[in-house]
Design a protein around this nucleic acid. Structure first.
Lengths: 264, 264
DNA sequence: GTCAGGCTAAAGGTCAGACACTTGGGGGTC
DNA sequence: GACCCCCAAGTGTCTGACCTTTAGCCTGAC
């Protein structure tokens, strides 16, 4: 339990990543102190030496133990906390605690990262679309076999409310419907990974909201998928999802090169 | 280009999450300054206002512009740099630069995060295994249709070298073989996402290396998959990959609860 | 003319110390 | 027993100084 028992220090030149730049140059043989501290703490957390929820020593204490100043410790902690490995609390009961892993953070991280990757043309919209199909079709298939009553009611809540055209609901509902299917797949990892992929498409690559006829077709697709899932028909679910995604494809596609114009 | 034109300041109480349901948990109505600074910079980077490779003002300048101390700026930058949004360089030509997105960092982040999620029982080994199958089967299918000559030679390099049993190569080659297929799928996003899933299984959940007969069967599987990919037979590739993964499954499974009871 | 070596300045890295703010608990008052 | 005030522990922030790294420039020797 007590953290005093760890060997916290950084006398030696810890070069854990002798990164070779594309040319092959060994880079930065000496790491800044805050990075060494962060690396050591990260290792303790990942290896489980520091248990989830456990409180680290106060910043001042750690500074003494590591033999660095408090500012250095704080910079290290900022890095860890932005990776959601720790979180801090102020006040007398405050301190730095090992954070409990949560899929929420993965969403936001993946969303921004995939967004950046696509913005930098490291991945294309086509690849994102393809990945999405790769994820959501199996999700629909799994959902048909596993959906609980809760899943079903959550799904039906995202369907068209019955009246005519409804652009606002059509869009929000669209998003919620797909999220609900991912959740109903029963595989949290799939959910965690597929959601950001979908989000990136929605927030960065939606071309146009199309006609009301388009949304009506989308609603019909959703209904078909829902019915198949409710009926427990895995193959039909996957098939309907496939054709649904094919219908959506033109809504996102060809957006790669359209970013040139500065008319935001 | 010039960064002086941005509005960098934080006079008001930026409460991005003013959640105060009288019954619920009121959440930190005021964010620390370093977090507000980090949020503002992050937004500038994500929105592309700060272009990739661009240099931010020196820490001292930003301190002036934001109206905070240099320490606060530095803490904000440490957070951004641990998210690989920026990187810093020392010396006269140094400074803080907007980092170019790279899939390498996503690997390491996802690997540690998925590892933590599984360690905390947020996701089970079964879910990871299932996700892996969901990713690698389509990867094999895609690879059959898209593989380049380079892909093929990379793949064949990971196959059994021809001699008898070879546990060391069998293991390393196994890993490389699967990575090579992901790459050959031609979908970088799939590659980026599936690799860490595989890595987590290998590094955290490998039960035993089994018999040499097991590895011989693995090598035979690999050969089958390779042949199907080389022949461009998508369905056969996926099918062989499927049965291969089924064979591997017991190598990882049932590791969840094996840590629990030391009873005898 | 070329090259080695040292000087310089810009910018990040580190430190020490101080004070402010937050927050839970303890103790006193009514 | 309820309320209020004060205290202590810990994070948050600031100041100002100095160290270290690094590229460019300058100088001088060969």
């Amino acid at each position: 339990m007590s953290v005093e028992s760890f060997s916290l220090s950084l006398d030696q030149l810890d070069d854990s990543t002798p990164q070779t730049d594309d040319g092959g140059l060994p880079i930065s043989p000496v790491l800044p102190a805050y990075e060494q501290v962060a690396n050591q703490l990260q290792e303790l957390i990942i290896k489980g030496t520091l248990a989830v929820g456990e409180r680290l020593p106060a910043e001042g204490e750690m500074a003494t133990q590591f033999g660095v100043s408090r500012s250095t410790i704080r910079e290290a902690l900022r890095g860890l906390s932005s990776q959601r490995l720790v979180h801090t609390k102020r006040g007398v009961s405050g301190g730095t605690f090992v954070a409990e892993p949560s899929s929420e953070h993965v969403h936001t991280y993946l969303e921004t990262t995939i967004g950046l990757l696509s913005g930098a043309d490291v991945v294309s919209v086509d690849e994102i679309l393809e990945a999405r199909e790769l994820f959501e079709e199996p999700a629909a298939r799994l959902a048909a076999g596993r959906r609980s009553e809760d899943d079903l009611s959550r799904l039906s809540a995202t369907l068209a409310p019955g009246d005519g055209t409804d652009p606002p609901h059509g869009f929000e509902g669209h998003k919620e419907f797909h999220f609900a299917i991912l959740k109903a797949s029963g595989n949290q990892l799939l959910d965690v990974i597929a959601r950001p992929v979908f989000s990136v498409l929605e927030t960065r690559f939606v071309r146009d909201r199309a006609s009301s006829g388009f949304w009506a077709a989308v609603e019909a697709d959703h209904q078909d998928i829902f019915d198949a899932i409710a009926a427990g028909d895995s193959e039909a679910s996957a098939r309907f999802m496939h054709s649904h995604l094919e219908r959506l494809r033109p809504m996102y596609e060809r957006f790669d090169r359209a970013v040139q114009m500065p008319n935001d």
